[in-house]
Amino acid sequence: MSKLFTISPSPHVHSGDSVNKIMYGVILALVPAFIWSVVMFGLDSVRVTLIAVAACVVFELLIQKFILKVKPQIADGSAALTGVLLAFNVPASVPSWMLIVGALVSIGIAKMPFGGLGNNPFNPALVGRVFMLISFPVQMTSWPVAGSFGVDAVTTATPLAILKEGVKNGQPVIEIFKNLPTNMDLLIGNMAGSLGEISALALIIGGLFMLVRKIITWHIPVSVMLSAAIFSGIFWLIDPAKFADPIFHLITGGLILGAFFMATDMVTSPMNPKAQIIFGAGIGILTILIRLWGAYPEGISFAILIMNAMVPLLNRYVKPKRFGEVNIQSTKG
């Protein structure tokens, strides 16, 4: 026989989906937010993103080639995605070397030691970001004022930081709000903040794109946002003078970015819808807890990392609904 037929176990067809398609799909979904960041912070955001992506990819390549001695798999896009997400979580003014350190932590500590793609328990980009936040608090919380390009950019505070500071000083929330951008501005992204998190609108467009392309399911983003809204809403109803309204909480800070892009990271999120909803709810509640009473004005990164640690437990104890898991009596009649 000149040509050999292939034999393989069934199924013999495939959906055509691939890891690469998923990773690049997510990156594509981040493009609107990136464009907005360029509008707001100019070339700085291009610099930060490129360096972060390049550093992540290079670190992964080096580790795979020289330490693990395996065939490099950087083309799968996961390292690039980590880079983009890391860049989106830092201020546009962050120094390049700091970013490279962050990338090294992301890839070299949070991802590869656990076995690389698919095995890391914590979201690598967030580990890198939190490492930077704790190590370089000044640079990581100096936010360039939007539109002021250049090295000597004026820095300002994020709406959440202003709120936190104000509440600490005993100012009523309504007073503080007078110094803050309007909800419309917050939605579009006309505020200070990390590179990619500012425009809720652009992120939602990206999120919808991922939902339509079935890269993610609705469970995690919806449960994160809903739980955050409900939890903050309860306190707002109790005392509107001390607590900000849920809409404000939803559209400021990294909540939308976190809900759509960080919490839904497949590797570090639970494996079935029920567990995903619990996971999302945990993130939402923890975020608001940190925002209201924590030391940091923003808590989504920590919330996601904490819930990441819960994922193995959730996978173990929350099982999907099995077919036929009913008793015979109830099905009859």
């Binding site: 793609l117 698919g118 639970p270």
Partner: peptide
Amino acid sequence: TMPCIRCSRCVS
């Protein structure tokens, strides 16, 4: 064959 990325599609 790539490593499992835990996308949970098989579960769904």
